[in-house]
Amino acid sequence: MCRLFGLHAGSRPVHATFWLLDAPDSLAEQSRREPDGAGIGTFDYDGGARVSKRPLAAWEDHAFAREARQLSSTTFLAHVRYASTGAHTLVNTHPFEQDGRLFAHTAPSTAWTGWTRACWTSAWRGWCRDRPTANDSSPSSPPRAAALAGT
């Protein structure tokens, strides 16, 4: 299953280098078991969402390490992917950004069955509208494994 890291530090920007690279079980270390992509999402000083991601394991991605060392933000959303379905491509790598929001999940695609068209916020309707599902049932809330950060 994928791994997800979220941090909100209040109003003062911080670095997340320890949790992303240096901790004994950092996200980079976890990517040795979850090698199918990694990304970091933050909000810049003006509140704009920013995403850096690649379909590579974080431990071998020099861009991930550089971003993890240099980024400073009040909010981080980082993800390492273990692909249960879908190709190892940029489009399948998390986090995602749309309309100033960041989104990532850790649920296998079967956990999203019927939910992907429901979308719990109107800002995500365009993103979710055309996602295929195995059935059309729409639960009233997103899977517990979902994370949504917004300004």
Rank of each mutant, 00 (worst) to 15 (best):
D46M: 03
C119N: 12
R66S: 08
A16I: 15
G41T: 04
R69W: 08
A38S: 14
N135A: 06
E29C: 01
D44H: 00
P142F: 15
F76A: 05
R125Q: 14
R125P: 06
D44G: 06
L77S: 02
A65S: 14
R117I: 10
G41I: 00
F43Q: 00
A134C: 10
D22A: 15
T89D: 10
A63M: 12
D22F: 14
A49V: 07
P132R: 08
V14F: 04
A65P: 03
L148S: 13
A38Y: 00
V51L: 10
S138R: 15
P13G: 00
L77K: 14
A107Y: 13
R66E: 07
Q98T: 14
P24I: 12
F18C: 02
P13C: 13
L27H: 04
H15R: 14
P108I: 13
A57T: 06
G47I: 00
Q98M: 10
T116M: 11
V80A: 12
H94T: 04
P55Q: 11
S137D: 10
P139M: 03
T113A: 13
D130Y: 15
A83M: 06
A146H: 09
F64H: 08
W112V: 12
F18A: 07
H88C: 10
G114M: 12
V80G: 02
G100M: 05
P139D: 05
